[in-house]
Amino acid sequence: MISLNVNQKTYEVDVDGNMPLLWVIRDIIGLTGTKYGCGVAQCGACTIHMNGEAVRSCVTKVSRASGQKIVTIEGLSQNNDDPLQLAWQEIDVPQCGYCHSGQLMSAAVLLRENPNPTDEDIDIAMSGNICRCGTYLRIRKAIHLAAGMHQNKSKEAKLG
């Protein structure tokens, strides 16, 4: 039995420790927002947060995740109101949408570490997430918008 903390909930799962974390998240726990793309850490569709880092869940054994803090797209915000999610809606970023849970999870790490990224910073952070619809320019625009929202939130919090 392996104990997992996913989106602040504890799950006890009876699986082989070598099973990819993505399988557990989707098929055992039932959180299907995280997608399977390539299975070899090449595309980024399966990106989740493990202790705050944008880990590829398709190549991460569930045994590595035991006792760690896992966040999936479903846990990025309480009400789908993370500035990134709002910016994604505002810009209407996705086309088919398949890669975007991974895109958002990667973008969240970027903004945490660099609240005001340049285009170059965005390219460095997001190059591991592939979008077959080619929405890269809208992704970049949405990240800039979300960065602005983050900063406004911070200012409001200081004033309030």
């Binding site: 850490a41 990106t47 880092e53 944008a54 880990v55 590829r56 190549v59 991460t60 054994k61 590595r64 999870m105 990667s106 973008a107 790490v109 970027l110 570490e113 660099n114 910073d121 460095i124 952070a125 997001m126 190059s127 591991g128 997430n129």
Partner: peptide
């Protein structure tokens, strides 16, 4: 590595 592209995000312990 940097941001969302750190080595251990893809390179596992094994």
């Amino acid at each position: 590595g940097m941001y969302a592209v750190k080595c251990s995000n893809c390179h596992q312990p094994t």
